[in-house]
């Protein structure tokens, strides 16, 4: 293909995105578009799968049957999100095994928030309320992103996430209105999850490397700082309803901006966790890699069985 032809394809491609048309798997796309989408969608899928671990760790200890059932359903939803995000990613010409390989070798990233430990039952509330809350803010704009399979997956993901967020808030509400001991659990969880949740919205705009291109491809509609502000403005009144205190002495309503001013985020901590040195990075990877390795013989057996079945059918047909 001549350079002129490629330029023309690219022009056409960009115009389609500007017109809000969806790009589908069989359409021509620039290699960088494909790679960026593989990176982002797989990162998102990995986050769902690793995100099962901190909550999964509380399934056997949930305080009531009702909460246990809800938690199981939630973690199962996350596995489902992982499944269709991996499928969306596979439409870009990469296999699920390759994606796992990238996760297990540390080449692919996942949301850093899951490198924090879930220590008490109240963390199930805080994770739903704050972590899913921040995730939704990140994800809702993706329902209109340019790549069709991703956009469609996100519509379903967002519906379920907003249910999870309400569920998390409801856990917090119950604790906040409970005994002093329960209220203390809730406040402690908020204290530990607040700052990492703010970090979930990504580095500040001047440090964010992917923003401009991602905006063009509608992988992003707002900058990290805008999203973070939106999250804070939305969450502070919810904390008020709970009667809990946001652990930020600098948090203050700014009448002029009609937004909350907030304190300095500890970006050293953020980069430490991103680079693999958070409290649970090693543990999470060990769990994922361990499950995968222990499962090898199972997956091999399933393949061998399917092959035998196919051969038997063929023989019968002959």
């Amino acid at each position: 293909m001549s350079e002129e032809q490629i330029r023309s394809l690219e022009r056409n491609f960009n115009e389609r995105i500007e017109r809000d048309e969806k790009i589908e798997p069989k359409d021509w796309m620039p290699e960088k578009y494909r790679q960026t989408h593989i990176r982002q969608i797989s990162q998102h899928a990995h986050s769902e799968i690793v995100g099962m671990l901190p909550e999964g760790n509380w399934i056997t200890r949930a305080p009531s049957l009702r909460r246990k059932v809800a938690l199981l359903a939630k973690v199962q939803d996350e596995a489902g999100h992982g499944l269709y995000l991996y499928s969306a990613c596979e439409t870009l010409g990469v296999t699920r095994d390759e994606l796992y390989e990238q996760l297990h070798t540390g080449k692919a990233k996942y949301s850093s928030i899951f490198n924090y430990p879930a220590l008490t039952w109240a963390d199930m509330g805080a994770i739903g309320w704050l972590v899913d809350g921040a995730a939704i803010i990140n994800q809702v704009p993706l329902c209109n992103t340019s790549y069709g399979p991703y956009a469609r997956a996100m519509i379903r993901v967002c519906k379920e996430e907003s249910f999870h967020q309400r569920q998390g808030f409801e856990i917090m509400l119950k604790l906040a209105n409970g005994t002093p001991e329960q209220k203390e659990l809730a406040q402690d969880a908020l204290n530990r999850w607040w700052w990492p949740s703010l970090m979930m919205l990504g580095p500040t705009d001047d440090k964010s490397v992917h923003t401009e291109q991602s905006m063009k491809w509608k992988l992003k509609r707002k900058t990290n700082d805008e999203l973070r502000q939106q999250f804070i403005d939305q969450t502070v009144p919810q904390a008020d309803v709970l009667g809990l205190t946001i652990p930020d002495p600098d948090l203050k309503w700014n009448e002029e901006r009609q937004s909350y001013d907030f304190g300095e985020i500890d970006w050293d901590e953020f980069w430490q966790v991103v680079k693999g040195h958070g409290p649970m990075n090693k543990e999470r990877m060990k769990a994922r890699v361990g499950a995968w390795e222990r499962g090898t013989w199972v997956r091999d057996a399933a393949m061998a069985y399917a092959e035998k079945k196919r051969a038997r059918k063929e023989k019968e047909a002959v």
Partner: peptide, 28 residues
């Protein structure tokens, strides 16, 4: 419920979690 997140692949992980979910629903 102990197995959630630790299954040999995603499909069996979902299935085992789902069975657990059914069983607890029955228990209730």
């Amino acid at each position: 419920g102990e197995l959630t997140g630790h299954g040999p692949n995603l499909e069996t992980d979902i299935a085992c979690t789902n069975i657990s979910l059914d069983l607890f629903g029955q228990v209730r």
